[in-house]
């Protein structure tokens, strides 16, 4: 590498580090305010406390919201992963007419503004006279999570060595048996990564939940309600800190399984 290229690399690295600071700036404030001994979220900091966390323990409405979000998140993760498996398997293994437009259509929610998805579903549900509930939120979340599940699972299925499935068929296993005993175990890390990512997205999704939930708020809808009250903000920061740790744990787990899936199936791919 020439001296000029090295100098360019240094400048770029400096820029990249500055950019990372910009990316992480808001997130780094969370722990500061979560443990700040003050009734307002503002500088200067006033010393260390954990009292904002104990407020969370004594808020039953919050616990219900957490339960609602877990319910929605788990259901969404399961359903979108199942749909993702179908789409990824079809696209990786089969050639069929209209493949590109069909897959493109399944991926469409990725580029649509979420408010459009939310409004469209709301209109239909109201017209059908269906009552809004946690399940209507799940319906919307599955729609936006399936593209992510598909993207993760597609690389898992594409990297799958098909001779292993053929060997199983040759040895007398049925198609269904082969799928459950050979294919699924081989793509299992991809399946787990998809479950974790879909769960994480659902846990954080606000707009669709805001439009489609009935009387039971999910966690982001609850947080949205709290953001209006200045006095509630320190405990919201504490809650945000817990969520941050939880999301990071889920994300690291998903990344771990995705890498394992890469090694197991011998390919490479990315999250997004």
């Amino acid at each position: 590498m020439s001296a000029g290229a090295r100098a360019k690399g240094r400048w770029l690295r400096a820029y990249a580090v500055t950019y990372l600071i910009f990316l992480y700036a808001p997130v780094l404030l969370l722990p500061l305010f979560a443990f700040n001994n003050s009734a307002v979220v503002a500088f200067p900091l006033k010393g260390f406390t954990t009292r904002h966390f104990s407020v969370l323990w004594n808020t039953p409405v919050l616990h219900e919201a957490v339960f609602n979000s877990l319910y929605v998140g788990l259901s969404t993760a399961m359903l979108s992963t199942i749909l993702g498996i179908c789409a990824a398997r079809a696209s990786a293994r089969f050639d069929f007419p209209g493949k590109k437009p069909i897959i493109g259509f399944i991926m469409l929610p990725l580029v649509l503004p979420e408010i459009i998805v939310a409004v469209a579903l709301l209109v239909v549900l109201v017209q059908l006279g269906l009552k809004l509930s946690l399940w209507t939120v799940v319906l919307g979340h599955v729609l936006v999570c399936t593209p992510f599940s598909y993207a993760i699972l597609n690389s898992a299925f594409l990297n799958l060595d098909r001779s292993l499935e053929e060997a199983s068929l040759d040895l007398g296993e049925t198609r269904l048996g082969t799928f459950f005993r050979v294919t699924l175990p081989l793509v299992a890390p991809g399946v787990i990564a998809s479950l974790l990512i879909a769960f994480t997205i659902s846990l954080d999704e606000f707009i669709i939940a805001f439009f489609l939930t009935g009387t039971e708020p999910t966690l982001p809808v609850y947080i949205w309600g709290q953001l209006r009250f200045v006095a509630k903000l320190p405990s919201v920061m504490a809650l945000g800190f817990i969520l941050l740790i939880l999301s990071l744990a889920l994300l690291f787990a998903a990344e771990f399984f995705r890498r394992r899936s890469e090694r197991q199936t011998g390919g490479q791919g990315g999250f997004l």
């Binding site: 749909l83 179908c86 079809a90 696209s91 089969f94 897959i103 399944i106 929610p109 579903l121 599955v142």
Partner: peptide, 22 residues
């Protein structure tokens, strides 16, 4: 082709019913 269409139909029908129709 039949296998592929059968396999892709659950997510496709889901998107038709919950995205295209709405």
């Amino acid at each position: 082709a039949r296998g592929g269409l059968l396999m892709v139909s659950p997510p496709f029908v889901y998107a038709l019913l919950l995205l295209a129709a709405p």
